[in-house]
Each structure stands twice: as structure tokens, then as C-alpha cells.
Design a protein around this nucleic acid. Structure first.
Length: 564
RNA sequence: GGGCCUAUAGCUUAAUGGAUAGAGUGCAGGGCUCCGGACCCUGAUGUGAGGGUUCGAUUCCCUCUAGGCCCA
């Protein structure tokens, strides 16, 4: 695929040079894209559109000069001569390329041979990526917005690994600050209520049921922790955090997500890293004192105002820990850092980037992606989500109700930027003909085909050995089968596009199209028939589609049953 | 008041500035004696409003309207 791409591009470039030498000094970016309709071709370039403003001639005239040169270039290219069947010019200015049967047959064969590696690549060249996501405060169970992040982050990590990156997944535990104090106090009050003490939760306390359960885990010793003091605070903060993290890990596990690292804010502070980074910035002259507090001159690096890093009472601010955290990330030597954040952190980006720049690190290595919220509806009505008020539906409940696969599918099938309205009633109602099942059903059908074929003496597992003559295979395939292969061979490129845009929904959309093509084909043509050679060829295509569905869904963390 | 995101069919949504805006669901109708009917086929319904840039705008820019989030 990549060779095909680069060769076509270089042919386009060469013919451009020989056709219009007067444009030598103008930089034109040559784009090559998949056609949306196979009737147009497989690939198209919009190069002629790009030429018109420079040449000031109608496209038809440009085409008359350009296309013969391009055809000559392709004819003179050893590979493309075999791989490109036809080149078309279509108004208002498209140059369309049709892939040859030989190329498509070769790709089919590649797919069958590479199996679970089909679509993988080494374009990542082993470069290391740290992907930080979810990082929900340990103040309560995960909600569906976290679920969306978990699904996206996990899928992206899988996909990048598939492309030869070395991805590590990380969860940042925000276990310091006001929210944790609220949590500790709420938990302590729940604990004291066990002794019949009449204590009310503070106004901004956490009201969720889970704190009652956690409080019950403690041995009931009335004399212990009878007052709210430093020691009590510390204990309940740690105990609460530990127990809630346990819950979070369980929920993530049942959602199929696990992390390589868990980094706590308290660790950064206790180990002196936060102090270190403040001293470091002070040494660089980026910190000044005002009204008893220490300020970072983040305005020097594009922030709209300076930020407090150490408050007048000597406490570090949230950003101080975050700066230390990101310094730590950079020091661990990753080639790329990706953060998945909720939209509520959006305003936070400029100040963090400013801090990273102040530290002297390459800002381009840090990519902060905002994943928009997911809001839950039940019976068409918005379910209010508040961890503090304790009115929320947890990720765990959603997973229990509709299953991991359906939940992941919903979360992944929208763009990161779009708000996700998740109606659980609808999701359940539609579960009989859910889009996930559409994909899974296609795979189950293929699997059942494989079994049926084996009974007829066609062994799918040994297919690749049987196909000794690629030309014979190709001769058995018709237009309908080639249509499937034309889509199939886009898969490696789709994976790369998904990774490039860090947008898993591209892959989902592709897989849905592939399943649709297959279902259509299946209900119109017989795969296993009396003609043995033809049956071999057709089962080969079906199996290849199965491979792509399996590889794709595996990357998305959606399971694929052999039977349904 | 400032910033970010969003607006596409009744609903949920797709379309790296490209060709006839593509699906699912819902609605109306049709299809297995045959490899799995959780499937297939046919039909109607469309880019929030107004400007601009471009050979070409759902996509980019400006104004407005509506929703979400953040900051003050």
C-alpha cells in the first residue's frame, strides 16, 4: 500500500514537471485519496484543480497535456504498470486510478497470509508514547464520561501499538487538594454516623452510597478518630482514596481497560518533585513573589495571565503538581506524550503548555486532546450526573445493563469533538438489532461458512498453501468479489488514518461499511458451490473479510464471538 | 463579559476543501425448499440563519441564534 502510494505520487510529480516546466518553483502538495464510490475508481488525485490557478487555463486543456505524460510515467514504472489498470479524467478535474486485478489479488493473498498482523506496520519505528487518560479524581466511581475516555484511550493505545509504537497507558491520581479533603471529611462523617452521632455531611460533601459501604469496612472503634484533626484527615483521605481506586480499577477491568502506571499527585509532592520543579523554575527566573504567593510568569509563554504555584500558606497549587508531573513525563524520555482530557480542563491547556515551555521542553511532543462529555439519558430524559450529590449512573451499571461491547461501540462511534448523548433505554431497546451485532453477525456468518466449507472438503486454514497460483485465484473472482477486496485493501491505510487523527471512530465507520458489503454479497451470491475452484476463491475473500473484522474490532476492544 | 466545543433526515449520526451529503433507527412495502432472516432489497424525509473566501464549502473566515463546558 505504501509503495503504491509513494510510486503514484512520484509519477504524478514527474509528469507534472515534464508537462509544465514553468511551475518548477511552485510547491504543490500532491494529494491522493480513496474514492468514495468505486465506480469512480480506487484512488483519486485533485492535482488538476490545484494547477488551474497557476496555469490560468481550463482544466480540459491542462488534462490534454498532463494525462498522456502521466500514462507514460505509469507505463514506465515497473510496479505501477502491473498495479494500475486504468486512469481516468473526470470533470470537473479528477484524475482517477483503478487498481488492477493483479494488485488486488496480491493484497487478498497478503491478508490471508498475514492474518492477525494484517494492517499492522512499523511506521511507529518503536518510538515510545505515553498515553494518559481517564485520570478521574478518586472521589467516586467512574461515570460514563470516563467510560468514553477509557474506550477511546484504550483503542488508541491498541492502534498505536499495532503500528509499531510502544505505548504505555497511565492514570494520574489527583489525590490531593480540596476535593480529597471533602471526600475524607464525608467518609469520616459516615464513619462517625455508625456510632449514632448526629453529624451532617458538609454542603459540598460527597453523598454517594459508596461511602457508606467504604465506611463499613473500617473496624468500629468508637474512641478512634473521634475528632476531625490532621491525623484523622490524613487517614480518611488515604483510606478513601485507596478504596475508591480499588473500585475504579475493578470497573476498568470489567470494561477491558488496564493501565501500566498509576502516578499519584501525593507521590510527586512527597518525593519532593514538586518542590524541585518550583526551585528549578525559580532558578531560571520564571517565578516571582507577589502578595506572599509564588507566581509563574506563564504570560511569557502565551498564557493570558501568570499563575500561582505556591499559595501564601505554603501549599502547592494544582498546576504546580501538574508541572512536576509533566516534567517527570518528559524526563522519562518518551517521544510523544498524549493526554486525553475532559472539556472542563480546556482552559487549562495554555498554562500547562506555557509551563512546559518554561521548563525548556519541546511543546510539540505533548498532544492534549479534549474528549467531549458523554451525557446519559434514560427514557429520553437527562440523568443528572454529580459525584458529589451522589446522583449518577456509574460506568459499571451501564456495562452491566448493556454489556461491554455495546458500551464501547457507542463510545467509539462518535467523534471526540461531538457531545455524546447516550440513551440507555434506546441502547437496550435497539440491542436486538444493534450496530455491534451487525458486525459480530458478519463475523459469525464467515465463521460458519468456514465450518461449512470444511465439511465440503475446503479447508480454510490451509487455503494459503493451496493458492499456489495467484493468477488462477484471480481468474475465479468476479466484479462483486473484487469490490470486497477493493474495500478490504484499504484497511491498513484506515488504521493509519485512525492513528494519524487519533480518532477511533474512523475505524468503526470503515468496519461498518465492510460488514455491509459482506452482508450484501452474502445474500446475493453463494460462496460454497459445486464449482470447487470458484468456491476456493470466494471463501478466500470471505475469510479475508473475517480477518479484517477481527483485527479491527480487537483493536477497538470489542469482542467477536465465533457463534451468536 | 471572555474562551473552547457542538448544530446535518422524526431520532442517533458519517463525510483529511471535492464527484449524486452516506449510514443506522423509525415509517411504508417486499424477500429464504438453498452456505446463519441478529440478514437482504425498494421508497419518502436533509446541511440552524445570513454574509464572505474558493474552480468547488457540511468542512475555512465573519455576524447572528441555540445547547454544553470553562474562566472572570
Amino acid at each position: 500500500m505504501d509503495i503504491l502510494y509513494s510510486e503514484i505520487k512520484s509519477c504524478l510529480e514527474n509528469s507534472l514537471k515534464s508537462s509544465f516546466p514553468q511551475l518548477r518553483d511552485i510547491a504543490l502538495e500532491i494529494e491522493l485519496m480513496f474514492c468514495r464510490e468505486f465506480s469512480y475508481g480506487d484512488l483519486y488525485s485533485n492535482i488538476l484543480f490545484k494547477l488551474t490557478p497557476h496555469l490560468k487555463k481550463p482544466v480540459e486543456e491542462i488534462e490534454k497535456i498532463f494525462l498522456p505524460k502521466l500514462k507514460m510515467e505509469i507505463d514506465n514504472n515497473r510496479n505501477l504498470k502491473k498495479w494500475i489498470k486504468q486512469i481516468d479524467f473526470k470533470l470537473p478535474g479528477f484524475v482517477n486510478f483503478f487498481l488492477s486485478e493483479e494488485y488486488l489479488g496480491r493484497r487478498l493473498w497478503d491478508c490471508l497470509k498475514e492474518k492477525e498482523r494484517f494492517g499492522s506496520s512499523d511506521i511507529g519505528k518503536g518510538s515510545s508514547v505515553l498515553l494518559e487518560f481517564v485520570s478521574a479524581n478518586p472521589t467516586g466511581p467512574l461515570g460514563i464520561a470516563h467510560g468514553r475516555q477509557a474506550a477511546i484511550g484504550d483503542a488508541l493505545a491498541n492502534i498505536l501499538n499495532f503500528l509499531g509504537y510502544r505505548v504505555e497507558r497511565e492514570y494520574y491520581i489527583n489525590d490531593e487538594g480540596v476535593q480529597m479533603e471533602n471526600l475524607a471529611k464525608s467518609l469520616w462523617i459516615r464513619y462517625r454516623q455508625n456510632f449514632g452521632e448526629n453529624r451532617e455531611l458538609p454542603e459540598n460533601g460527597y453523598r454517594g452510597e459508596y461511602l457508606l459501604e467504604i465506611a463499613r469496612k473500617l473496624p468500629l472503634i468508637k474512641e478512634k478518630f473521634s475528632d476531625w484533626n490532621r491525623e484523622t484527615h490524613l487517614f480518611f483521605s488515604q483510606f478513601g482514596c485507596q478504596e475508591i481506586l480499588k473500585m475504579i480499577k475493578e470497573d476498568l477491568a470489567s470494561f477491558g481497560v488496564s493501565f501500566d502506571h498509576w502516578i499519584a499527585q501525593s507521590f510527586l509532592i512527597d518525593s519532593g518533585k514538586v518542590n524541585e520543579v518550583t526551585e528549578f523554575l525559580k532558578g531560571k527566573g520564571f517565578i516571582y513573589e507577589k502578595e506572599g504567593a509564588l507566581w509563574l510568569k506563564s504570560t511569557l509563554f502565551g498564557d493570558d495571565k501568570d499563575r500561582v504555584v505556591v499559595k501564601a500558606d505554603g501549599e502547592f497549587t494544582y498546576i504546580a503538581s501538574d508541572i512536576a508531573y509533566h516534567k517527570d513525563k518528559y524526563e522519562r524520555g518518551f517521544d510523544l506524550l498524549i493526554n486525553l482530557w475532559g472539556p472542563d480542563h480546556h482552559g487549562y491547556i495554555p498554562r500547562l503548555l506555557a509551563a512546559v515551555e518554561a521548563l525548556g521542553y519541546d511543546v510539540k511532543k505533548l498532544k492534549i486532546l479534549i474528549v467531549q462529555l458523554a451525557t446519559l439519558y434514560r427514557d429520553g430524559k437527562l440523568v443528572p450526573m454529580s459525584t458529589r450529590a451522589g446522583t449518577f449512573i456509574t460506568l459499571e451499571e451501564v456495562v452491566k445493563e448493556i454489556g461491554k461491547d455495546v458500551a464501547r461501540f457507542f463510545f467509539l462511534s462518535r467523534r471526540r469533538d461531538s457531545h455524546l448523548d447516550f440513551d440507555i433505554t434506546l441502547a437496550k431497546k435497539e440491542s436486538a438489532d444493534n450496530p455491534v451485532y451487525y458486525l459480530q453477525y458478519a463475523y459469525a456468518r464467515i465463521n460458519s461458512l468456514k465450518n461449512y466449507a470444511r465439511d465440503k472438503g475446503i479447508d480454510g486454514e490451509q487455503l494459503i498453501d493451496k493458492i499456489s497460483d495467484l493468477r488462477l485465484l484471480i481468474s475465479q473472482l468476479g466484479e462483486e468479489e473484487f469490490k470486497l477486496i477493493r474495500l478490504l485493501q484499504q484497511f491498513p491505510h484506515i488504521i493509519q488514518e485512525t492513528a494519524h487523527n487519533l480518532e477511533p471512530n474512523i475505524l468503526i465507520v470503515y468496519l461498518q461499511t465492510l460488514a455491509k458489503y459482506f452482508h450484501h454479497y452474502y445474500s446475493h451470491y453463494r460462496v460454497i458451490d459445486t464449482d470447487l475452484e470458484k468456491s476456493y476463491a470466494r471463501i478466500a475473500v470471505a475469510l479475508a473479510i473475517g480477518i479484517v473484522l477481527r483485527n479491527g474490532l480487537k483493536l477497538l476492544g470489542i469482542s467477536l464471538p465465533e457463534k451468536m
